[in-house]
């Protein structure tokens, strides 16, 4: 398991090798790559995103989310890395990898992980468009 919130992401190839080494029972590796989209929900052209995080809480909550999802779906292992700082359009923001015995539980775990990271880990995003910059509002999710 690896939970990281940092100014740079590790290479995806390295992360795949790392998760593969964990067990010979792995039958599927599922990967989510979050990328900065060039158009905001308002239709404005995005120049870049700025991510900031609670330095100590963000990695701790990320690790907690990983542990919960691994246990809930019985998957073999998971990795999540989230970038902070300025991230231009087209660049990767987040890698989430899930290793499972079969694809079904892997897909379910991956979706849960990505949703939980967005809603629970204290990381915040500011969208900088051609016209303005604004903080993106988080959504309140009932437990």
């Amino acid at each position: 398991m690896l939970a990281k919130v940092n100014e740079s992401l590790d290479s995806l190839d390295d992360l795949i090798s790392r998760i593969k080494e964990f067990s010979s029972d792995i039958g599927a590796i599922l990967i989510f790559i979050g990328v900065v989209r060039g158009q905001a929900k308002t239709g404005e052209r995005v120049l870049h995103l700025e991510y900031t995080a609670h330095e100590t809480l963000a990695p701790r909550v990320l690790e907690k989310v990983l542990r919960r999802v691994i246990s809930k779906y019985g998957i073999i292992d998971a990795i999540a890395e989230h970038k902070i700082g300025r991230v231009p359009v087209g660049e990767d923001i987040m890698y989430v990898l899930v290793a499972s015995r079969h694809r079904e539980e892997g897909f379910a775990a991956l979706k849960d992980l990505v949703d939980s990271i967005k809603h629970e880990v204290p990381i915040w995003k500011k969208e900088v468009t051609e016209q303005r910059s604004y903080w993106v509002e988080g959504e309140k999710v009932d437990p």
Binding site: G34, Y51, A53, H54, L57, H82, I93, M94, V114, I117, K118, H119, E120, V121, P122, I123, W124, K125, W135, V136, E137, G138, E139, K140
Partner: peptide
């Protein structure tokens, strides 16, 4: 005491 907005990462 930390006062934070709801997370909006990803």
């Amino acid at each position: 005491i930390d006062i934070m907005p709801l997370p909006s990462g990803g």
